[in-house]
Design a protein around this nucleic acid. Structure first.
Lengths: 191, 191
DNA sequence: AGGGTTCTTGACCATGACGTCAAGTAACGC
DNA sequence: GCGTTACTTGACGTCATGGTCAAGAACCCT
């Protein structure tokens, strides 16, 4: 699966690498909707080369998404899975996802399903949703989390945070985090 | 203050009215950032006429904002002011504002301070903020609302909801409203 | 009715993005 | 080295927005 293509010419290989690197950088900073010209400029190639090599934004994203965000999201899942208290596990998960959305516009775009055409990306996203649903159910079983919450709600809460985080440029992180805590607090059962 | 200008020609007067009406309609439905061409089409005039008569989007907004949203917002304030319980007053205010943001994109734009250049609009907005700050303080005095909340937080909670509502096209209102309740619940003091 | 003025028009410029392709350039194999 | 082929380039076409203005149309007054 690694060397399917007939082997690229040296300059092409070089460019593919530059473009990948530049895309990681630009996407990480400005999200998956950054102008491709910007990626091209950062890579020192022309826009046409990106289209030629990757077939457009979609292909380029597919080529970097793994390195770009997959490990961030799976990292959160594995880190949180070991927490014993189901409520804390559930809340930790949301808290970390929400902060990731603030910190990494690209991860945010993934979670917002901004690129519905990309398979690996949709898969990643659905995996995260499924896991979140599990955490929710376990937390609800303790009776400490509202039982009218659904897995769909969790997705939408993440979606809402994503929309906010995207617009949040130039707004302090600690205020954002504090308001996340309020929302989290609102998901607990009425005492 | 009413008849300052030397009196417009008949066609001009007619057009001003058409444009105002069209703007009310278009802005109400699609928010204050609707393309002016759309307003022009709806009014049956050319885009140039709008620029000529109102000097651009800013002037057009100023000309309709009163009728468009001012009464909505002041209506909420006066309706809520009579509620006796400070907590309920505070929560009612937020709840109504948040729903207004969902229901009326134009009002939402105002509350988001999307048009920082328009004087009447900024005034309206600051008035709302000031009132909200008062409600907050009174609610906090009962001890039932978190005392780490600031007036700035309230503004930002409204801002966040606005961002969400703007992106919320095609998402059911009751889900939106339910998540608003969660957030509201999170603003109460920890029991 | 017709001349002078006010208004309107829609073609025009600008911006900033996406995406394409003929023509030029650089690497590879012999 | 040199021809062939792979690769890159950047100008170009397109679309959607904001905004302008000379020329023509509509109006009003006498």
């Amino acid at each position: 699966m690694t060397s399917q293509a007939p082997r690229l010419r040296a300059d092409a290989r070089r460019n593919v690498e530059s473009i990948r690197t530049a895309a990681l950088d630009v996407f990480r900073t400005h999200g998956l909707n950054s102008p491709l010209d910007e990626v091209a400029r950062a890579a020192g190639v022309s826009k046409g080369t990106i289209y030629h090599r990757f077939g457009g934004r979609q292909g380029l994203i597919d080529a970097v998404v793994e390195e770009l965000v997959a490990e961030r999201i799976t990292g959160i899942i594995t880190a949180v899975r070991d927490i014993e208290d189901p409520v804390e596990r559930f809340e930790s998960y949301l808290r970390r996802i929400w902060l990731l959305q603030y910190d990494e516009p690209a991860a945010n775009d993934v979670l917002l399903r901004a690129m519905p055409g990309s398979d690996p990306l949709v898969a990643l996203c659905e995996h995260a949703s499924a896991v979140a649903g599990g955490f929710l159910a376990e937390a609800q079983a303790t009776g400490k989390i509202r039982d009218d919450l659904t897995a769909e709600d969790i997705y939408l809460l993440v979606w809402e945070r994503g929309i906010i985080a995207r617009a949040c440029t130039e707004q302090p992180r600690d205020g954002y985090a504090r308001r996340c805590e309020y929302t989290l607090r609102g998901l607990r059962s009425d005492s």
